[in-house]
Design a protein around this nucleic acid. Sequence first.
DNA 1: AAGTGGTCTAGACCACTTA
DNA 2: AAGTGGTCTAGACCACTTA
Lengths: 248, 248
Amino acid sequence: MPIPLHFQITNDLRERLENGEWKAGDHFPGDKELMQVYGVSSTTIRRALDELVREGWLNRRPGKGTFVKKQYVETLGKLTGFFDQVRAKGYHPSSQLLRVSEVDIADFEEYELDVFNSKKLFLIEKVQMLDKEPTVLVKSFWPIEIGRQLANYNLIQEGTYEIAKGELGITLEEAQQYIYASLATAEEAKHLGVNEGAAVMVMKRLVFSQGEPVEFSINFYQADKYMYRVDLKNEMIQDGNGIIVVEN
Amino acid sequence: MPIPLHFQITNDLRERLENGEWKAGDHFPGDKELMQVYGVSSTTIRRALDELVREGWLNRRPGKGTFVKKQYVETLGKLTGFFDQVRAKGYHPSSQLLRVSEVDIADFEEYELDVFNSKKLFLIEKVQMLDKEPTVLVKSFWPIEIGRQLANYNLIQEGTYEIAKGELGITLEEAQQYIYASLATAEEAKHLGVNEGAAVMVMKRLVFSQGEPVEFSINFYQADKYMYRVDLKNEMIQDGNGIIVVEN
DNA sequence: AAGTGGTCTAGACCACTTA
DNA sequence: AAGTGGTCTAGACCACTTA
C-alpha cells in the first residue's frame, strides 16, 4: 500500500479542479457517482473530499451536495511553494550565502536555541533575492551533524528544506511560527537594502522532526512588499485568534 | 445524532490531557483499549485521536503506539481565545467604541470591500484595551442588515464574533488572513498611543459564512508587544510558505 | 419520497516495530 | 510471532433539502 487510494483520488480531483473542469459554484459530482467512477467505498471518497474541503476547493452541504468554491483569493492549495509562486509571476529567485558554519548558542542568546539541548549548532545565513533585489534575510540553525551534511549541497540554488527532505531523508512533520512587526537593525537594513529603522516583518520558526526540534530559523522581510497568509476554519475564528501577548 | 461520538471522545480525552493525566512522552492508551473503554469502533476512536494529533497533543507511530507530545510551547489547542488567554494572565480587557454606523465603501477604497457586492456597509470601529492600555485598533465591516443587529448589543463587553455566532446564529465557517508589518499613520498612532511612524503589525481578515463574505476587518497591533502564531504540518513546511509577494 | 452528505460499525489486510 | 497504528470495504442509519 505505497500510495493510499484516498491520496491518489485527492490528487486527481485537485488537478482536474486546477484545470478548470468545473467552475466556481458548479455542482461537483456526488459521493455515490465518485464511488462508482473510482471503484472505491464511501469512506475513501469521503476522505479524499475532506482533504479538498480543507484546502478550500469544495463546500459540502448535507441534503444539497458538493459545490466548487468561489475563489475570492488564491486558495491555500495553490499557495504552497513560494518559489513556484514567484517564478510563475516571472521573478528570478536566487540567494547569497553570508555564513555557513558551526556556532556557539551563547552568541545568540536573543533566540530560544536551548530547545536543541546542545551548546553548538550549525548556522546557515543567507539573503534570498528576487531579480537581484534582496527580499529576505534568513538565519537557519540546525543540529551540527545535519548542518554539516547540508553544507555539502548547493545552498544557493536549492532550498534548505528541499535538501533536508529530498537528499537527507529528514521528515519535517510540523512547525510553530511566530510573526511580528519590528524595525530593521543596522545589520538587517544593510542586507535588505533598506534604511535602519524601516519596518520589517519577522517570522520565527521552530521545525520538528519525529517530535524533536530540527531547525530554528528567523526570517526578516521588507515590510509592505511581503505579507503572510493564514487560513482559518470554524472554531478558529475568534476575536484576536492567533495573537499572543509578548511578555517582557 | 446531535453530538457526534468522535467529538465527545475528543473532548473527554483533551480534558484529561489538560488535567495532566498523562505526562509528556507517556505512552497513551492504544486504539484497542480505547475502543473497549468507550465502546465504539476503531473508526470512531481513530477520528477522535486524529483531531488530538491535529491539535498537537499526540504523536502516533505505527508499530510503536500513541504518545503524549512534549509541549515545547503552548499547544494550538490551548491557544484559541485571546481574551481567555489574556484574562488567565491577569489582564483586564475592555474596549472603547470609536464608530458604529453605516458607511459608503467609496470612502474606504484602500480596502477590498467590493467582495460584498454592496455600496454601503456597516462599520464597527473600536480600540481594544488591556488594563486600560490600548492594544488593538479594529475596523470591522459587516453587511448593513447584520451590522444593525450587532449594534443592538453591548459591543464594549462582548466580542463581535461571539455576538454574531451566539446571538445572531451566524456560522463563521472560514477566514483568510493577511499579516504584515507597517508604520503607524497619525490616526493609528493616536489610537494606539505610539508615535507616528512606529512599527505596527497589521492583520487583515475576510470571514465567510455559507460561502459568502460576511465580515472584513483590519486590525492594527503595537509591534513588539504582539505576535501572531501559526502551526504548520508536513507538506506545508516549505521555504517561504505562507509568504506572498505584494504586487504594486 | 428521493437524494444528499455525516456518522458509525465490524472486520479485513497492510507495513512497521519489538521481542 | 505478537502488537501497533494506517487503509479500506460494505453497508446501516441519520438529519437535512428539494420536490
